[in-house]
Computed example of a mutant assay.
Amino acid sequence: MNDLLHLLAEDAEDLAVISAALQDAVAKIGDITVEQRGRRVTVAFNRYRWEGKGGERVRSALQIGSVLGVQARNLRRGAKSAVIELLTLEFAPGEAPGGTITLSFAGDGDLRIAVECIDAVLADISAPWPTPRTPAHDA
């Protein structure tokens, strides 16, 4: 398990690297945890290992800190077992150094997280396992 990914984002460029690593990751609505007291959002994903030899997924956790507020659009929070697929993670600057981190999902859903500053960590938390399905995108 030496080749597990551990990434830290402190600016928009770092966040773009995490976004690329998480492209086509899947999660369940119930895998999203918002801790208002701790001011953080954590999402557990099954991430396709684009950087690996291919044909593998790994359990990963994305944690975003310094959270000021969270808004969900087109995500049924009551459907805890509903599967969502991450398309991208983007940062829109606001009052420096803060702004909004948006997780965009297939099916036109998104999670908008207002942050005081960019403070995100992505870490693989399991050994990879084989998957017969490679994500495909329309040209």
Rank of each mutant, 00 (worst) to 15 (best):
N2F: 05
N2Q: 14
D3A: 12
L5K: 10
L5H: 05
L7S: 01
E10S: 14
E10P: 00
E10K: 14
E13W: 02
E13Y: 08
A16P: 00
I18N: 05
S19L: 01
Q23K: 15
D24Y: 11
A25E: 03
A27D: 00
K28H: 10
K28C: 07
G30P: 09
G30V: 07
G30M: 05
D31W: 09
D31F: 08
D31A: 13
I32N: 01
I32E: 00
E35Y: 03
Q36K: 13
Q36A: 12
Q36N: 10
R37V: 07
R37T: 08
R37M: 09
R37W: 02
G38Q: 10
R40K: 14
V41W: 08
T42L: 12
T42K: 14
V43N: 06
F45V: 10
Y48I: 04
Y48H: 04
Y48C: 06
E51G: 11
G52N: 09
G52H: 05
K53C: 01
G54T: 07
G55S: 08
R57N: 13
R57W: 09
R57Y: 06
V58G: 03
R59I: 11
S60D: 03
S60E: 01
S60L: 04
L62G: 08
I64T: 03
I64G: 01
S66D: 15
L68I: 06
V70L: 07
V70Q: 05
A72M: 02
R73E: 15
R73P: 00
N74F: 02
R76W: 08
G78P: 00
G78R: 07
G78A: 11
G78H: 03
K80W: 04
K80H: 11
E90M: 11
E90I: 04
E90A: 15
A92K: 06
A92Q: 12
E95S: 14
E95D: 15
A96K: 11
G98M: 08
T100M: 04
I101D: 07
T102D: 06
S104Y: 08
F105T: 01
F105A: 03
F105Q: 03
F105R: 01
F105C: 05
G107E: 03
G109E: 11
G109F: 09
D110Y: 09
D110T: 07
L111P: 00
L111G: 02
L111T: 02
R112M: 10
R112I: 02
I113F: 10
E116V: 00
I118T: 09
A120C: 11
L122R: 01
A123Q: 15
A123P: 00
D124W: 01
D124N: 05
I125Y: 00
S126V: 02
S126C: 02
S126E: 11
P128N: 08
W129F: 13
W129H: 11
P130K: 11
P130Y: 07
P132N: 07
H137C: 01
D138E: 13
A139K: 06
